[in-house]
Simulated scan of single mutants.
Amino acid sequence: MYPARNGDAFLVDAGGPHILVDGGFASTYQDYIATDLALLAAHGGRLNLVICTHIDGDHIGGLLEFFSLNGPSERRGIEVGAVWHNSLRSLPTSTSRPGNVNDRMLLEAIRRRGYQDAAVASANPISARQGSSLGKLLRQYAYSWNSGDGTNCISDGTAPLSVGGNVGLQVIGPKPERLEALRDLWLREVRKLGYSGSLDASDLLDDAYEMWCASAPPPTVPTAVPIAASANLRLADVYTPDTSISNGSSIAFIISAGPTRLLFLGDAWAEDTVAKLKAMQPEAAPLVFDAIKVSHHGSLRNTSVELLSVADSPCFLISSDGSRHGHPDFEVLAEIVDRPAPFERQLFFNYETAATERLRAHASRSGTAFTVRVVDNKWIQVGGVQID
């Protein structure tokens, strides 16, 4: 779990196959990921799969850096078996108006603006040299993109993928309508700016779409009830469902390696995850995973009491330095550890925050043991192996 500031970046070693999930910001790749991938390549390894969960600056920036530097197929820095990434060309379109000079000028203006707006509040800005969308880079360098050329989307209807040995992935989100909602939002916004042209696939359109999505302003949501340090409100008192269309488009999935199962939630909406997990486990008992990557950096808008009633684990991963929106929210962390369980829970963070300090002083309401761990760019072992 890389130090990605307020973003996400994970490298999974599934006993041979390796999976890179998001890349944080460009400097996350430069400072941490690049060294690990160079070492992996030097030992004859490869990335079996790279996943960009959704188009947000704190998830996609490091992947832009990686794919822009990894080179064409004849001289890759490290081989990549497949890439999952939902861009505009991954969705069917019904609009086919002819374009004009003004349309192209508008798209060029969005492209020139680049990804910078997504990282204004971060200490890790995306590299200024990034002038292309991730989709364009994947096509330019001939990667296997969404099992082809990127014209298919990754959604909860995607067939399970085997990445070697007994390692596989099952997609549990997003629903296709979440991807279509993001596309439609983008189209409405550029129409307001005067765009009247086609949505037929093109590099320029891919660039404009991704760069706009990565820096789009978040939706207006109800303000959470302020929680004083001595307050005793529970997650159920303050939970407000996420309405970010971008977050709703996150790829959420389960990695299975033999009996070991890891649940990665990106920034997915809790309600979508609950519906899918309930369909997988009709019984009242929760699904127990070997590790759960908590959605949206521990935001109280993406983890509900109901979600925690259908999914549990002895290992929770929370990625955030608290620099944006105060993530993780203490109410989420307390709800995780307050529930009874037949095992001790370990909560792994990549930064100390006000929430981790407060959690250390918290006593589980159920008496279930838990441990707060802050890891410094070290491997976290899960799945039948004691975490050390």
Rank of each mutant, 00 (worst) to 15 (best):
Y2R: 11
H18V: 05
V21T: 07
D22R: 05
G24P: 02
T28G: 04
T28L: 03
Q30R: 15
D36T: 15
L37P: 05
V50L: 03
G57R: 00
G61C: 08
L64Q: 10
R75S: 13
R75M: 08
R76C: 03
M105A: 14
L107Y: 08
R112S: 11
R113F: 11
S122Q: 12
A123P: 11
A128P: 07
K136T: 15
Y143A: 00
T151I: 06
C153V: 10
C153R: 13
C153F: 14
G164R: 04
V171G: 05
R183F: 12
R183K: 15
L193F: 05
G194V: 09
S202W: 13
D203V: 10
L204R: 00
L205C: 07
D207Y: 05
A216R: 14
V225W: 12
A231N: 08
S249K: 03
P259W: 10
T260W: 09
L263Q: 09
D267V: 03
W269T: 01
D290K: 07
V294F: 03
V294A: 02
H297F: 08
G298Y: 12
S304K: 02
D312G: 08
P314H: 08
H325P: 00
H327N: 13
P328A: 06
F330R: 11
E331T: 15
R339G: 05
P340H: 06
A341Y: 02
A354H: 11
R358W: 08
L359R: 05
R365A: 13
F370P: 04
I380H: 12
V385T: 15
